[in-house]
Design a binder for these strands. Sequence first.
RNA 1: CGGGACGUGGCGCAGCCAGGUAGCGCACCUGCUUUGGGAGCAGGGGGUCGCCGGUUCAAAUCCGGCCGUCCCGACCA
Length: 585
Amino acid sequence: MAGTAISPGYRYGDGAMRWSKLFIPTLRDAPADAEAASHKLLVRGGFIRQLHAGHYSLLPLGLRVHDKVENIVRQGMEEIGAQEFLLPAMHPASIWQRSGRWDSVGPEMFRLQDRKEADLALGMTHEEVFSEIAREIASYRSLPQIWYQIQWKFRDEPRPKSGLLRVREFAMKDSYSFDLDDAGLDHAFEIHREAYIRTFQRLSLDAIAVQASSGMMGGTGSVEFMVPSPAGEDDIARCAGCDYAANVERATSTLAPVDDGDASADLARFPTPGVRTIAALETVEGGAPAHRQIKTMVMVLDGAMTLALVRGDHQLNFQKLADGTRATEIRPAEAAETLERLGAHPGSLGAVGVEDLRIVADHSLRGRHSLATGANEDDWHYSGVDVDRDIAVDEWLDLREVSAGEPCVNCDRPLEVVRCIETGHIFKLGRRYSEAMGATVLDADGVERTITMGSYGIGIGRAMAAVAEVHHDDRGLVWPAAVAPYEAVITVASMRDAAAVAAAERLYGELRGQGAEVLLDDRDARAGVKFADAELVGIPWRITAGRAVADGEVELTERATGDTKRVRIEDAAARVAAALASARP
RNA sequence: CGGGACGUGGCGCAGCCAGGUAGCGCACCUGCUUUGGGAGCAGGGGGUCGCCGGUUCAAAUCCGGCCGUCCCGACCA
């Protein structure tokens, strides 16, 4: 535009939304190692490319979507008065040592050293740094505060997978609330919950708010936002009759009482050659139905072997065990360890007479008698086990995982179990970090009080992938207008058709003049290629300038439905603008 | 961490077992034709066959080690 000599090929402004000038590397074939729909389509559509496991480059189209997701999330934060920060991604070890997490989080944190051999970490979350800053809040009159950032997080996931769904480096919106007391925290938590619901609605995600385990964050309560999808990694239990919903790491249900009979039987050891499973023990002479067996899970909690007991027909939930015992590192024992300590292989294990190991048991075993379990000798089991009499249970915990169909604890209606993607998680942290960092204020009475905190996260890239998981068809992505990389594409059916080119240019100018994000597909390619690409990339509206131009018309096609209408060229811009306006948040 | 599979032009694959000048489809470049649902013909460019070592006259191919990627599992005791 200016008089400065710029090589025409590099003229930026005008070419920026012409497909022929853009880098949109679409692929006919998905990479062989992609499994999840979002992974395949984001790669095929030219949105992302993998650098290595768990690390993806955002290409121009991908960045546009990512930016839009960010901005919708940002809008939700601004609406509750949150203030945006940007903190360092790289932290000194000392700040993590002060909170105790340098040692407690383990290998999930990327650690490195600088040239002076000082320990550093790549931030996996920012409670420590934000609460360090919050030390400058000196008076209760400065509270409450809500601070947030959208920043890269680094987590050395044991298994990155499914494209953008689980990665080691990702943008997260993390916010932190600072209040004088628990009532203030409850309020901050509630307005976040509401903001998240609004935000996920704007992203066209049907997120379910569920009770959740707090995991490594600690604290007194947490809620996850779960988007139903087979590509997810979490199961939630949800009641069809009331609003009960919880991650299976926390969910409970009502259990029908078990009738063990009147009298407690005598403990008896009996031979069970070849019996290695619950099912086998059901049918053998002297055995018992699964719900009258004790399943003995040998676990190692922070290095200490522990027996976790559940009913034979129940499953142990590891997160419940970790939460209930406050263990940070938890794994099943290896067969060799088990053999050494208990004297038998898996399949013949039990807690009867075990004195030197910690024993935790699920509530469903409380007071039970006349049960069957392994005898800690291969091919031998016990019958007539009376839990109170024969097993030295150290702690009673909720350890069992709920199953679909069990009655809801609130209303007795059957629970359903749904596979979900966790797109957001909010925590009531309490005073753990503020106390460690020394973030205190003086209250109205001049008394020093520790600030109470909450922390709240949304994974930007994961939310983007979740949208792709939910909104696609066999032709490609079907982006909701709010997050689409472009709102509309004008497809010139043939670049040799001068009238069509002229109509397309006119509409392109008009729509850009209205502020629409419109892409002009001016590639010298066949119409079929352009249609297929527009559908793969998932642009909500397509305006086709082709044979209808001879009649003074263009075609307007909605990606989601495939519906096509012919409209007058002079009316087309207004029609598209109206459609876009109704879709904007 | 355990189990499985796989690494060959940008993407998808064959070749490997039975060692002998690296091939196909898509994509890319040139030309002609075609032009509303991933065009046709002709010509062309691009690959240290993941890396290191070994065996051999000769290694994508056989052997050893390493690295990387994906999937399943972290339970049914």
